[in-house]
Design a binder for these strands. Structure first.
Lengths: 212, 212
DNA sequence: GTCTATAGAGGGATAGAC
DNA sequence: GTCTATCCCTCTATAGAC
């Protein structure tokens, strides 16, 4: 709405990025925004209320920024390229870092938990739509559905983002390794009906017993 | 060493679990331990010093608890079963939750970053050893090495653990879906030399150009 | 809608008695 | 090694002037 409200939202995002969930306070946010501390309570009631609004609004803005690109993804290969770019850009902008901070705080605070769940859901919904398209043309679709896989992808993304903060090179190597594993899916596609038959046999065997 | 020191370590772990990195203080930890607040500073210098020691010691204890079981893993299937059990047990004990909290705090604090890196490394080293054994007998080993993959596995594990705190059913479904994807590796093994040839063709193509 | 001022709680850390 | 007492800071939140 008005300008101060927007400045506080932006400052909350920035403060969460720079000082983390443990360093957030009405005073630190207001100082970053360049406004009076009391305005946090006037506009948002509590500090938690401001963090809630900031997380939701900034996530919605970031997701909207990628909606078109995500909509253009037609293959696993496209998805991996976009995922890499998204990882770098979000790291730069700090939105995944913010989600990670709110997610950490959410483990003990039911209000923050709702914020984190809803914000993550914005990403999960996009990821799910893309996965549904990519998996439809692949034998891998017989193994896992997009709705189940999407939260795992989002969660893994955040875990790796956190890991990047303490060991950037290991995290980068890990992302490379995961990317390489996608070749498994491509090989299965290359093998056509032979691969598909082997896959179905395996699935039957796994469902019947120990699978080994 | 002495008893108070141990009580403070245990209390720090418990407080990190119950109140998170944002709710940690010498007073909250001392109250949980049932000792005087000033003893935090006598034994550990600062609150951060206590958190550091607590994270390192509790992680080392949890890893030691699983070392034998991890050493007995001989196949991807074994690894997935143990992974599931480990996920449930660590969730119960709260050690992954603690690592997640320290990891969140580590994004802004270089001292905590070292704590998180070293503690995670304890898990990563174990995971790497297991992966090296499992991948040696599988064509998947041609795609990714254990050293690169291990940090990604640990990071993803933590991300999913955080996700469980805000949406337990989605996180569980995600773990199931990831588990199903492991069938991809088994199918490739089933296909023997045919699969291996297809895999090598794919890798050559991927390294040469766009891979699609 | 924005400011100052302030209440009241909680926090890190230390001095000094025991 | 443990305790009390305390300093001084930061925090949330509100009252009330402008």
């Amino acid at each position: 709405m008005n300008d101060t409200r927007g400045k506080l939202i932006d400052a909350a995002v920035e403060t969460l990025r720079v000082r983390g969930i443990a360093g957030i306070s009405a005073r630190t946010i207001a100082a970053t925004a360049g406004v009076n501390q009391a305005l946090v309570f006037y506009h948002f009631g509590t500090v938690a209320g401001l963090v809630d609004a900031a997380c939701r609004e900034s996530t919605a803005a970031r997701v909207a920024l990628y909606r078109d690109r995500l909509g253009a993804v037609g293959s696993l290969h496209d998805l991996l390229i976009l995922g890499r770019e998204l990882n770098a850009a979000e790291r730069e902008a700090g939105n995944v870092a913010i989600l990670a901070q709110v997610l950490a705080g959410a483990q003990q605070d039911p209000v923050l938990a709702a914020t984190a769940r809803d914000s993550l859901q914005l990403w999960v919904a996009e990821i799910e739509a893309v996965l549904a398209r990519v998996l439809a043309g692949s034998p891998v679709g017989e193994l896992a559905d997009a709705a189940s896989l999407a939260p795992a992808v989002a969660a893994a993304f955040i875990g790796i983002e956190l890991y990047e903060g303490v060991d950037a090179s290991a995290a980068a190597a890990g992302l490379d390794a995961l990317e390489n594993l996608s070749v498994l899916a491509e090989v299965l596609e290359d093998l056509g009906s032979v691969g598909r038959r082997a896959l179905r046999t395996r699935i039957r065997r796994a469902r019947a017993g120990s699978g080994n």
